[in-house]
């Protein structure tokens, strides 16, 4: 991809992906869904998830699946607030960039 994905945007995408399931979702699925939008290696996400967890934006719990425990990630209220902030910021930013591409009519 031509455009770099900064840390904040990656955080925002991860939070958005996790927030889509009220019950939470697991590492493999998060990775696959994030990989649909941005190009990253399959091992990039663990440190990000771990950090979001440490920052209390995500919480984890284990759930039985196919005879083993699978770790699920879920948004905390703090993570939810953070996601809202990211979303508002992204709308502002992407709107500005888009209007610039459209000839600066609104800018």
């Amino acid at each position: 991809m031509i455009f770099n994905t900064g840390a904040a945007l990656l955080d925002a995408i991860v939070l958005a992906v996790v927030s889509r399931d009220a019950e939470g979702t697991y590492g493999y699925r998060i990775t696959q869904e994030v990989r649909q939008v941005i190009d990253l290696s399959e091992s990039t996400l663990y440190p990000v998830l771990r950090r979001l967890q440490r920052d209390e934006c995500l919480e984890v719990y284990d759930r039985e699946y196919g005879g083993r425990n699978r770790r699920y990630y879920k948004l905390t209220p703090r993570g939810d607030a953070q996601l809202k902030l990211y979303r508002a910021e992204w709308e502002r930013y992407s709107g500005k960039v888009s209007s610039m591409f459209e000839g600066g009519k609104d800018a």
């Binding site: 399959e42 663990y46 083993r68």
Partner: peptide, 30 residues
Amino acid sequence: YYEDYLSDAGVGPEEDVQPILGTPEEVAAS
């Protein structure tokens, strides 16, 4: 996490994981 990940990716105990995750050194470094 990586055990989970490989199970969810459907990788058996004898299968090669390098194409998916890279080397253990890279993963440990990250």
